Simulated assay, not measured.
Amino acid sequence: MMRVLFMGTPQFAVPSLELIHKNFNVVGVVTQPDKPAGRGKRLTPPPVKELAYRLNLNVYQPEKAGELFDILKGLELDCIVVVAYGKILPKSILDLPPYGVINLHASLLPRYRGAAPIQRALMAGEKVTGNTVMLVNERMDAGDILSQEEVIIGEEDNFYTLSERLSRQGADLLVRTLNLWFRGSLKPVPQKEEEATYAPPVQREEYKLCWKAEAESVRDRVRGLYPNVYTYFRGERLKLLKVSVVEGHGEPGEIIDDGDFIVACGYGAVQILELISPKGKRMKGEDFMRGYSPRKGELLK
């Protein structure tokens, strides 16, 4: 059975590790170091580490690439599989396994190369995305493609739901691809550089909603950056979880209805269907209207 090292960190990588563990000999798991999380800033292990411990797998959390190379060179690897690990691998590591380093990326490459392909696809209003299994080279997400599979983006999808579906379907595609690759049944296909687009990391300031945008753009930002998009109501922060595009006009950010929670955008309007109140309570827009009594003409900023 092929000796595989798995590299991954967030929840997105968990289904892949589960399925690879069932099909191959996983000789170790490399993941990012534990990080402070929550109000108490307690050191918290990444989801991949928690699963690896439950599967009784050896876990490595190197701080530097040099440490990683020293670990890997003694493992007699056939292949390294990377799923959302979070760091660029140097050539010294890429050259180690005879079957190469294989990555699962949550887009149809060469579109949306980079750290945030799911968020950026949703924010752009895409109707279709997918998964790509590729050979890793020294350039970001630019290696030859081994397989791809489309995934439809539903109207109700947000970052959470789409990530979950892509991670499950991607895990299945990854294992099917590895079986073909190990049997010598796949020919890598170079990416078309002229079609490449990029998905840079989301910056903190992008979570603050700009009401001057068109209504469709506001909706897609709420979906893509779920559950972190926010605005201010009477000086207090509201997190917007779900909005729909409706007819209406007014000053950007203006509440334009006495009954439903409808807010004007740069063009068109959105109805806020679900949110997190200033007190941290998840609630429907209609309940917020009853509880906080926002007035028609008030502005969200």
Rank of each mutant, 00 (worst) to 15 (best):
R282V: 11
Q271M: 13
A264D: 04
S244G: 12
L275K: 01
E274D: 10
G280A: 11
N228G: 11
P252K: 14
C265E: 01
L240D: 01
G280T: 09
V229L: 03
L275I: 05
L241P: 02
I256L: 11
E236P: 04
P227D: 01
V243F: 06
R219W: 11
Y232M: 05
A269Q: 07
P252L: 14
Y267R: 15
I276F: 14
R221C: 06
C265R: 02
A264M: 11
V246S: 03
L275G: 02
V263I: 09
E254S: 08
V246M: 06
G259H: 13
G280W: 15
V245E: 07
K281I: 12
G250R: 12
L238S: 04
F233K: 06
R221N: 08
I262S: 03
D257I: 00
G280V: 10
L225N: 02
R237V: 09
P227Y: 14
G224W: 01
Y267F: 14
L238T: 04
T231I: 04
L240T: 07
G250S: 10
I272G: 02
I272F: 07
V222H: 05
E251V: 14
A269F: 06
D260E: 14
G268D: 00
L225Q: 07
G235M: 08
K279Y: 12
R282L: 14
A269K: 05
R237L: 09
G266N: 11
G224P: 00
G250A: 11
V218K: 05
P227Q: 09
R223V: 09
R221M: 08
H249P: 00
D220C: 12
P278N: 12
F261W: 12
V263A: 03
L275S: 01
G250W: 13
G268A: 06
G250C: 13
V245Q: 10
I272M: 06
L225P: 03
L238C: 05
V245M: 11
D260L: 11
Y232S: 05
S277I: 06
F233Y: 14
L238V: 08
E254D: 09
L273G: 10
V218W: 02
L241V: 05
E274K: 09
D260S: 13
N228K: 15
L241C: 06
E236C: 11
D260R: 12
I262D: 01
S277R: 12
G248P: 01
G259L: 14
E247P: 06
E247T: 10
G268L: 07
I272C: 04
L273V: 09
D220A: 13
A264P: 01
L238R: 06
F261K: 08
V270W: 02
V218S: 04
I276A: 08
V245C: 09
G248V: 04
A269C: 10
E254W: 10
L273I: 13
R237A: 10
Y230T: 00
D220Y: 08
G253Y: 02
V270F: 04
V246L: 06
E251S: 13
G259S: 15
G266F: 08
V263Y: 00
E254V: 06
K279V: 05
R219Y: 13
E274G: 05
V222A: 08
I276K: 14
F261T: 03
G253T: 10
